[in-house]
C-alpha cells in the first residue's frame, strides 16, 4: 500500500498517476453505462462492439504508419468503428429480429479479422496483445482528456433522458406507445455504450471489457432500489476494483487488466453467495405464510365446494 502511494506521488512515474486518475474518472461511464447494459440485457452487443474495435485500431495503425496519415490514430479508428458498429447493431435489432444473434456473432469476428489483417500489413512492430488485454499504464495525457469528455457526455445525456432511458429499458413497447422515439433512443444508448467500450478497451482490453462493464452493475443491482442508486453503487464498485487491481498488480508485479477482472469476479461471487445465505437465513421463520397463496383454480374449487356443502 505504501509502495502504491509512493508510486502515485513519484514525479518520475507520471503514467502511474494517469492510470489512477483514469481509474477514478472512467468509473463514472463504466458504472452508468454498465447499469443499462445489465438491465437492458445487451452484454452480447457490448461484446460485439468491443471486438469490432480491433478493426478500427488496426485501420488506425495502418493509416498512420503505412499511409502516413499522422492525424488519424488507433483511437480515432476505434471511435469511428465503435459508432459504425452501433448503427449496424441498432438496425439489426430493428429489422432482423430472429437472426439478430447470428449477425452479432458475424460482426464480432469480422471486426477482429479486419483488425488483425491491417496489423499484419502495418510496417514496424505492433503487438495486438496490448489491445486484446489492455494496459491502463499506457494511458497518456490525451487519453485523460477523452475520459473527461466522456464523463461530461455520459452524465449530460443520461441526466437529460433519464426517464426515457428508464422506460426504454423497462418496457420498450410501452415507451413507444407513449410517443417516445424508442428507435433513436436505443441508437443513442448503443452509441454511448460504444464510446464507453473504447475507453474500456484502453483499461482492461478487448477480451475483458464485458466483465468490467457488467460485474460492478450486477453487484450493484442486488442492493439497489432504483436505476440511479444502481449507477452510483456500480460506479463506486468499479472505481474500487480498478484502484485495488492497480495497487495489487503494482505490488505483485502482475498485468493490471486480469488482476482488476479477478478482483471484480471474486467480489461478485462473494456477494452472490452472501446474499443467498442471507435470504435463506431470513426466509425460514416466515415459511408458513407462503402456503396461503392459492392459485385461481384452487380458490374457485374451494369456493365451489363450500357453496355446495352449504346447499
Amino acid at each position: 500500500m505504501t509502495d502504491f502511494l509512493a508510486a502515485i506521488s513519484d514525479p518520475n512515474l507520471p503514467f502511474f498517476r494517469y492510470a489512477v486518475l483514469t481509474g477514478i474518472f472512467a468509473s463514472i461511464p463504466f458504472g452508468m453505462i454498465g447499469t443499462y447494459v445489465v438491465v437492458r440485457r445487451i452484454s452480447y452487443i457490448a461484446g460485439a462492439i468491443s471486438h469490432c474495435i480491433l478493426g478500427g485500431i488496426g485501420a488506425g495503425l495502418y493509416l498512420q504508419n503505412a499511409m502516413g496519415i499522422t492525424w488519424f490514430g488507433p483511437l480515432h479508428g476505434a471511435i469511428a468503428v465503435a459508432l459504425l458498429a452501433s448503427c449496424i447493431l441498432a438496425l439489426v435489432s430493428l429489422y432482423a429480429k430472429q437472426r439478430e444473434d447470428s449477425v452479432i456473432g458475424a460482426l464480432w469476428s469480422v471486426g477482429m479479422a479486419i483488425g488483425l489483417l491491417f496489423i499484419a500489413r502495418t510496417p514496424g512492430y505492433s503487438d495486438p496483445m496490448s489491445y486484446l488485454f489492455g494496459n491502463i499504464l499506457m494511458i497518456t495525457r490525451n487519453d485523460l482528456f477523452f475520459v473527461l469528455a466522456l464523463d461530461v457526455l455520459v452524465i449530460g445525456i443520461i441526466g437529460i433522458f433519464y426517464n426515457t432511458f428508464l422506460a426504454l429499458c423497462f418496457d420498450e413497447e410501452y415507451a413507444q406507445l407513449r410517443g417516445v422515439r424508442t428507435h433513436w433512443l436505443y441508437l443513442l444508448l448503443i452509441c454511448l455504450v460504444a464510446l464507453t467500450i473504447v475507453l474500456l478497451v484502453r483499461v482492461v482490453g478487448i477480451v475483458m471489457v464485458i466483465a468490467l462493464l457488467t460485474l460492478p452493475a450486477a453487484i450493484a443491482g442486488n442492493i439497489s432500489r432504483n436505476i440511479m442508486q444502481m449507477m452510483i453503487f456500480s460506479t463506486l464498485f468499479c472505481c474500487a476494483f480498478i484502484l485495488t487491481g492497480l495497487g495489487a498488480s503494482y505490488s505483485l508485479d502482475l498485468p493490471s487488466g486480469p488482476v482488476i477482472i479477478m478482483i471484480a469476479a471474486a467480489t461478485y461471487l462473494l456477494v452472490i453467495i452472501g446474499l443467498n445465505l442471507f435470504r435463506r437465513w431470513r426466509k425460514k421463520p416466515i415459511q408458513p405464510e407462503g402456503k396461503r397463496s392459492l392459485t385461481v383454480q384452487t380458490a374457485i374449487k374451494s369456493r365451489a365446494a363450500s357453496k355446495v356443502s352449504l346447499l
Binding site: 437529460i160 433522458f161 433519464y162 426517464n163 426515457t164 428508464l166 422506460a167 423497462f170 418496457d171 410501452y174 415507451a175 407513449r178 410517443g179 417516445v180
Partner: peptide, 12 residues
C-alpha cells in the same frame, strides 16, 4: 409515472 412520458421530449 411512465404513463405520463408523452408530456415532454426528454421525458421529464
Amino acid at each position: 409515472c411512465m404513463g405520463r412520458l408523452s408530456g415532454s421530449f426528454t421525458g421529464r
